[in-house]
Design a protein around this nucleic acid. Sequence first.
DNA 1: GGTTCGATCCTCT
DNA 2: GAGGATCGAACCT
Length: 201
Amino acid sequence: MILEPFPRTFYDRDTVQVAQDLLGAFLVRELEGQLLVGRIVETEAYVGPDDRASHASVGRTSRNAVMFGPPGYAYVYVIYGVHHCLNVVTEREGFPAAVLIRALEPIEGIEVMRKLRGGRPDRELTNGPGKLCQALAIDLRFYGHDLCAGREVWIASGGLRPGEDIVQAPRVGVRGDERALAVPWRFAIKGNPYVSRPAPG
DNA sequence: GGTTCGATCCTCT
DNA sequence: GAGGATCGAACCT
């Protein structure tokens, strides 16, 4: 397994395309000498200042500022006061866009993930955005972290396995039912058991 | 300095 | 399927 970080040019592209290309890639966490690796099986795209589901739709704030910066950096935020969510910033500087990593398939360092997740069943280690952050010990310290540097947290090329297909669906947790919010910008590997629920497809 | 709300998870029914 | 947990940021006063 090659765990070379994606170059910044990978992230400096159309966000919806990046969200799809991240499926099958490896999210790598280096924790106290241990390597924790998960295969990305579910993502969501948040695109531009006019995407009302995006945190950037309220304009630039200290919370979302990294989304407005150059691509290839981590946007981490706290949700419901309890959980962390990991996004990767995409597209050119000045255009706020990111991909939310929603679910992983545990690949390496599963023992550590079990410990960090309090002994939950393996299937529930990383099948949700808050869960995977807990399993990989990712929190606000990684706000603005450079994912292209290959230290602590980064993403490496993976790809789909033979026979695997991508399914798309409307994003989770988005309010309202208007067309703009119903765009199918949630992507997942079809049938993968680690996709968060409700599973699309 | 107080209030409100959230790109969720867990525990119970 | 419902409700509580729990905290950082935003938006008031």
